[in-house]
Design a protein around this nucleic acid. Structure first.
Lengths: 233, 233
DNA sequence: GCAAAAGTGTTAGGACTACACCCATGG
DNA sequence: CCATGGGTGTAGTCCTAACACTTTTGC
């Protein structure tokens, strides 16, 4: 290790995960009761130490696996926080990731067992440290993402109706998209595949299920919904 | 320091700066000859260790000040790299920032004295480690930024012509914007202020100088140039 | 007057919004 | 047959790309 000879300063290195889930037409965030001092017992994002010989993205996957039992969760880096006084427990540097999860009963059991809880977007609790800022950044990130590509693959079930997708977008942007226009726009993107099956639970007529096409590049270079952007900020 | 009792692992903590400058209608990047092993003497981004009791953004400003003499440089965080084997010298975590600089003679003297050199976008040298990836990410970031707000305040001189601004955009997106349409769009945004003075060096008729209005929010929520996005990706 | 950049005007096409209007079907 | 969400059609508006055109002035 070449750099050791200089006796350079090293810092505690952690990750925080902002976990989004979707259930019953609601976008939710997962918080944990903190297990160590300081602020033990308060609500916080899922966090953990990065280990020797580990990348932060792998550490984030590891803590996700530990606390939700989920493997191979979709995640993206959000931002890195390193103000020396952000954590009263010491100088800690944190790389933030957001993760997207399909909520189901199995998850909810594990979640409960670990003292964690889902919160809706408009009912967020007070969080430790700068975690409220972390959430803002993560929200910002997924809004931009949902604006530039058709978003939902990692939050919706395999098959879903256009209305389901619209509800998700309504949640993300906290607005109401026009059903007709939303449908036309979304289908024009050519990334969805229509199935033969119908969902009969929401209407007499029934709504066809769709799914994301395999191997389809989802990224566009242009905002999908103008209206969304205006809401976004 | 609460966390010390656990004897948690700590990591070497550094910053890298991707420095953009603009001179003679060319967008340029600043690279340095690396001064320590490994890869001593090879071209690299400006980097430095983060110190105890320092935030990464402050460390980035500090190394910029040290090597360019510039204070208060505009910068934004780009991404954080932490794969344990990315630096052959040891496990180092790096937070990347990009910085925007108005090139002038004073800068260029200091730059030369420090064994640094400006490179045009299409003539980048080979760089150490993953620094080529870092540059891609920084470029991506400023392209997105230039797409969502009127960009150039930190790269152009105080007063500039619309043609100057268009050249900058041409460089950023490696394309050619239509002079008439570019002018109309840019002026419609209402963030530029027309001066009485003309630049007579580029044409017989002369072109009016403009400057960015003070205290104007520059961020939009919508792409400024559709064409730019298409080029962008 | 000519060249060359600055700056303005015009037109066709595309995309989005708002909203009217069918469709299918369980009750 | 009716209420309800699913789904389609359309007119008006706004934005943009392309490009023709006018302006200014040193030579």
């Amino acid at each position: 290790m070449l750099y050791n000879e200089y006796e350079e300063y090293k810092r505690l290195f952690s990750v925080d995960c902002t976990i989004f889930g979707y259930e019953e037409d609601k976008l939710k965030l997962l918080f944990f009761k903190r297990r160590i001092e300081p602020c033990k017992g308060k609500w916080s994002l899922l966090g953990g130490w990065v280990r020797k010989n580990e990348a932060s993205e792998d550490a984030a996957q590891r803590v996700l696996l530990d606390l939700t039992g989920l493997d191979n969760v979709f995640q993206e880096q959000v931002y890195t926080f390193s103000k020396p006084d952000r954590d009263p427990g010491g100088e800690v540097l944190t790389v933030e990731y957001y993760a997207l999860i399909k909520i189901d009963n199995r998850i909810n059991e594990i979640v409960e067992k670990n003292g964690a809880s889902w919160f809706e977007l408009n009912q967020l609790p007070e969080l430790i440290f700068d975690h409220n800022e972390l959430i803002e950044r993560a929200l910002d990130k997924i809004r931009k993402k949902a604006n530039n590509e058709l978003f939902g693959k990692h939050l919706l079930p395999e098959k879903f109706t256009i209305t389901n997708l619209r509800q998700l977008y309504n949640e993300i942007f906290q607005t109401r998209f026009d059903p007709g226009n939303f449908r036309k726009k979304v289908l024009s993107l050519g990334v969805l595949e229509k199935l033969d099956e119908k969902d009969m639970s929401e209407s007499r007529k029934g709504a066809f299920y769709y799914r994301f096409k395999e191997n389809k590049e989802l990224t566009y270079t242009m905002p999908i919904f103008k209206r969304a952007i205006n809401i976004n900020n």
